[in-house]
Simulated scan of single mutants.
Amino acid sequence: MTTTTPIYQVDAFTDRLFGGNPAAVMPLTEWLPDPLLQQLALENNLSETAFIVPLADDPAADYHIRWFTPATEVPLCGHATLASAWVVFHKLGRAGDTVRFQSKSGVLGVSRNGDWLTLDFPRLSTESRPTPPDILAALPGAPAESLYVPNDTNYLVILENEAAVRQATPDLRRLKALGNQGLIVTAPGDDGDFVSRYFAPGAGIDEDPVTGSIHSVLTPLWAERLGRETLNARQLSARGGELRCQLKGDRVAIAGQAAFYMEGAVRLPEA
């Protein structure tokens, strides 16, 4: 007997197809073995595949969510959570305007207001460190001091301006040699409040098109620097993305839109 499971693909943090960051969302009735989840994410070959399982008896959350890149499971992912919420509201028939996901980073709420979905994410802490030699070699012009994010092992460097972020072409082999997840580069924005890009060769992603989770770090950073809690952000990948961010104490609200691309069924291997 052939077993299939549904799959959806949604472009997150954009209002148009072929923009933002594409995520696969695979609703399951129960968890599959971890090696199979990783194989499915590799086969999908997107920066993230989100797997969600309903939680019928959990008063704190509605679904359990996990995220896999083609190479590894990650502790937090914004765009695939936003895409999962879109699927829950528009394809799985959830009533109301909120959904809660239990995750490795705690309970993550998502609310909808018209075409906008807002993630309720944790504020992630950073540590100031000397910029590692591999980053200095990989990214000419990188500052001598950087920030390290213990939650997901990312490094973050602040560049002089938007043009420097847009023109950054880091040596991905040197970045991978760091042995961590990736590198965030950011600067003040010309039109919005700040811009960023994210390179994650340690997670099997050369450059992530739009990364909601890094805004759990970027929002408090720029809120402090700019002296306000509500910020407009852009990620300057080739696909590009728009985010509305707000610092709320130890939480960060990260809002974006979504564009539906496709749905289908995946044939699972026989046990």
Rank of each mutant, 00 (worst) to 15 (best):
T5W: 10
I7Q: 08
F13N: 06
F13D: 09
F13I: 08
T14C: 15
L17Q: 07
P22T: 09
M26T: 13
L28A: 11
T29V: 06
T29H: 12
P33S: 01
Q38M: 01
Q39V: 00
L40D: 03
A41K: 01
N44F: 11
N45A: 14
N45K: 00
E48C: 06
I52K: 06
P54T: 02
D57V: 01
A60D: 15
D62E: 14
H64C: 01
W67Q: 06
W67S: 04
V74F: 06
P75I: 05
W86I: 04
V88A: 13
L92T: 09
G93F: 01
A95I: 01
F101W: 08
F101H: 03
K104H: 09
S105E: 08
G109Y: 02
D115W: 04
T118W: 06
L119Y: 05
L119C: 09
D120F: 14
D120Q: 15
F121C: 01
F121D: 00
F121N: 06
S128T: 13
S128V: 11
T131I: 00
L136R: 01
P140F: 05
N151C: 03
D152E: 01
D152G: 03
E162S: 03
P170S: 01
R174A: 12
L175R: 02
G179W: 08
L183S: 02
G192S: 07
S196W: 11
A200P: 05
G202Q: 00
I205K: 00
V210A: 11
G212Q: 01
S213I: 02
S213E: 03
T219Q: 09
P220L: 07
L221S: 12
A223P: 14
A223L: 12
R225S: 12
L226W: 07
A233K: 08
A233L: 12
L236K: 10
L236A: 07
G241H: 10
L243M: 15
L243T: 12
C245Q: 08
L247C: 12
K248F: 07
K248G: 04
D250F: 02
A255W: 08
G256Q: 14
Q257Y: 11
E263K: 11
R267V: 04
L268G: 03
A271D: 15
